[in-house]
Amino acid sequence: MGLDRRVFMKTLGLAGATLALGKSTGTALNKDNPTEFYGLLYDSTRCIGCQSCEFACAESHNLPEPEDYPDPEVVRKMDETRRTVVNAYTTDLGETYVKEQCMHCNEPACVAACLTEAMYKTKEGPVIWRGDKCMGCRFCMVSCPFDIPKFEYHSSNPKILKCDMCYDRLQKGEIPACVEACEEGAIVFGTRRELIKEARRRIHENPDLYKDHIYGEHEAGGTGLLYLAPVEMDKLGFKTTLQNESYPSLTKGFLYSVPSVFVLVPALLLGIHEATKNNHQTEDDGNE
């Protein structure tokens, strides 16, 4: 059943959407349009769990090749040697696959957390890590609601590792390695607006196949990674309780209070000091 659906989708998908959307047309960065973020649309119904994306990712980032397989019994996790993993989940529809990686949030918590601007949201959309700035405090890991950044605990010169949407390749006009490697068309690359439009089209044309939910459209204030799935995302190990406001908005109130505290508190303290200046002369007799 599952396979039939995939074959069907494969034909449909290859003929339709991917062509329009640029995996095969090889959309490079649109330099004329710097205001739009690029992102990825991952369609769980098309993914067959072949791990091509994992191998391509490992190869293009000089990481070791994966040695395990998606297995419903095991939750595979990203770590300092892999920036993306495909997991299998047993759902009502049989085995369903899902690829995990950095969500490239519109307003990333890791970027707001970073005090050295090492975590950086590029104007093209990818969230990248810059080692020459990072001091290894791991506040990005504490703050990321998706638990994406990984740290090399066993290195004297540790790096933070996470998906950077192949930022280097993007600048050369190529598409991300995982997108290029995916023969099923499960991942497509494009501007976020185009991707949402495409996701809506797929849901509209196949309402029975998809849950009517684009994960990442609103979650955490919107993400560059968008997910379509045949089941609710919590069945695929994703958090569905995340807030729709961006995570940096949680600290905005505190940070905005800083300038007013710096103006008001010293003035107040000085005022109290002046007002109480003469107190001790009268009250002091016994103590001093």
Binding site: A112, L115, C134, M135, R138, F151, F254
Partner: peptide, 24 residues
């Protein structure tokens, strides 16, 4: 606790002000 403590001067000398960060 810093993995890359030699970069601790970055937020101080002013070449990388992550002013949106509470840790800053």
């Amino acid at each position: 606790d810093l993995g890359r403590p030699w970069n601790v001067i970055n937020p101080i000398i002013g070449n990388n002000f992550g002013t949106s960060s509470v840790l800053f």
